[in-house]
Design a protein around this nucleic acid. Structure first.
Lengths: 104, 104
DNA sequence: TGAACATATGAGCAGACGTTCATACGATAA
DNA sequence: TTATCGTATGAACGTCTGCTCATATGTTCA
């Protein structure tokens, strides 16, 4: 995409969709969840341990990530296994990771 | 970067830096500013027109973008011209743009 | 010099956000 | 069936965020 094409395509809805995606990535707890999922499937209680917050807090955050289609899940017994929804999410994480590394 | 490398490198500071970058991109007004800058340099009053908010509001947002090193600026007379700080920023914008386009 | 302009900044306010707590619900184990 | 586990959800609370308004600073023009 050329930089010049923004003005033609950037309607409010697209802009809102972009900010929804970025705001989903704009929290350390959610980033811990997502980077953990980038390594493989994890159930809620595992994610609670990785992030260091309560299972309830993780569940709330997972709902947000589900609503934005950043994660998918499979129910197995009383566990629910979450995973990244697609490679695009991993790609965004990597870019943010690299960008953060270059600064300071 | 392999997906497996997250756990070794993701200290809290890095995670905070990532969320700082993503949260800077997590607002429609700032996205309008940044996508306008992706097309070329703009002064504050031009950005106010593009975004449809007051010059004061734009100035506040530009300060945030400056603090996070996402934009750079040059003073010329009484105008201040802003531009994207580097190609990494444009790259993040493009990815968000494309990701937003694929959904719904 | 004085007026108008471009930008910056602090205070204040309304709304959004992230966590905890209490509770609920389905699934498994005893 | 009953107790426990894993997860989800709503309410409540404190914090953060983005805007407006008032004000300040520096620049240009008459």
């Amino acid at each position: 995409m050329s930089r010049r094409s923004y003005d033609k395509q950037l309607d409010d809805a697209r802009l809102k969709a972009m900010s929804d995606i970025f705001s989903a990535l704009a929290d350390p707890t959610r980033l811990r969840i997502l980077t953990a999922l980038a390594e493989g499937e994890r159930c809620v209680c595992d994610l609670a341990e990785v992030t260091g917050v309560s299972a309830s807090a993780v569940s709330h955050q997972l709902r947000l990530l589900r609503d934005r289609d950043l994660v998918a899940f499979t129910r197995t017994g009383r566990h629910v296994c979450y995973r990244l929804a697609d490679d695009h999410v991993a790609s965004l994480l990597e870019q943010g990771f690299e960008h953060a590394g270059e600064r300071r």
